[in-house]
């Protein structure tokens, strides 16, 4: 798509109307909620959201919902299977003329990282194999937020969670879900951050012009689980991008392209030092070694980019 053909050139092209409802029970400053409302403002109500168990299950607690359109709750591992059922039902209704073309809905999976990187992988891979026509939004808060921030396969190395409280924090490494998706060769996959709404809007625009399995992996700062003041929620997102910890990129036409190239990357400390979950790394020499390791991994990543 040519640059000039794009709808979102600047913030002035942004929707000024908020389609997503207020009054949800998410924490003040929730980064996951922020990305959901930004996406919803762009997609609108001709959608049906299939929600894997997680914090966002609480968006719609009977009889309250922030959605204008539909929402369905599934077990933690099963959202893509739920999406298949809903898509099939819509297709049958369309084919048998019981639903008009203009009444068709976009099927959107809404899932946390615990489900997406972990127990939901198999159902997701199956949906990709079948070429299911759906959007897959993973809000990545790097842990099991809903149950008190236990570590998940998306937790970064060294982060303290309620199940990795020792001096070294989480021993494992964050899984690369973007590459797992790319390995399935889907029509579209991208990473986004709500702190970069323009980049997000352009990606949503591209993804809407395509069909089949399409993923958005959204960096989602979690004040409660990560230990920072809610007011800093967007700033934490900026720093993740500026330090190069969260690369903004897309997979389209079989190729990976970076959509934002941080000119001069900030040191990762700038990002880490603002979050309680990394505080222990600054308190010991072993912790300093982990910081150096994290910096090394980021440096190696970007060396591979250009």
């Amino acid at each position: 798509m040519s640059e000039s053909g794009m709808q979102y050139r600047g913030m002035e092209d942004f929707p000024s109307t908020r389609l997503f409802g207020s009054g949800t029970p998410m924490c003040a400053g929730c980064g996951g909620l922020l990305v959901i409302h930004q996406l919803y403002d762009l997609l609108g109500s001709d959608t049906v959201f299939i929600n894997a168990a997680g914090c966002m299950t609480l968006l719609s607690v009977y009889p309250y919902t922030p959605f204008r359109g539909s929402w369905l709750y599934t077990a933690m591992a099963s959202a893509p299977a739920g999406a298949q059922g809903v898509r099939d039902a819509l297709d049958i209704l369309l084919e048998s003329d019981r639903l008009r073309r203009e009444e068709n809905l976009e099927v959107v999976v809404l899932t946390g990282d615990g489900a997406a990187y972990g127990m939901g992988l198999s159902a997701t891979s199956g949906a990709l194999d079948r070429g299911l026509d759906f959007i897959y939004l993973c809000y990545d808060n790097e842990g099991y937020g809903n149950t008190g921030q236990q570590y998940s396969p998306a937790t970064p190395h060294g982060a303290a969670t309620s199940t990795s409280r020792g001096n070294g924090g989480f021993r494992g490494n964050k899984k690369d879900l973007f590459s797992l998706w790319a390995a399935h060769n889907p029509p579209y996959a991208a990473t986004v951050s709500a702190s970069e709404p323009l980049d997000l809007a352009r990606k949503v625009e591209k993804l809407r012009s395509l069909r089949g399995p399409r993923m958005l992996l959204a960096f989602s700062p979690c004040p409660t689980g990560w230990g920072f003041e809610p007011a800093q929620s967007v700033m934490i997102g900026n720093l993740a991008v500026q330090t190069g910890i969260w690369p903004l990129k897309e997979f389209i036409g079989g190729k990976v392209e970076h959509t934002v190239l941080p000119e001069k990357r900030l040191p990762v400390e700038e990002y880490l030092k603002r979050q309680g979950r990394f505080a222990h790394l600054f308190a010991s020499s072993a912790g300093r070694d982990i910081i150096a390791e994290l910096q090394g991994a980021v440096d190696r990543y970007w060396e591979g980019v250009r």
Binding site: G21, S22, G23, T24, P25, L59, T65, P66
Partner: peptide, 9 residues
């Protein structure tokens, strides 16, 4: 739709 607005957070 939008019934969450009834909850005054």
């Amino acid at each position: 739709g939008l019934t969450s607005r009834l909850l005054k957070t």
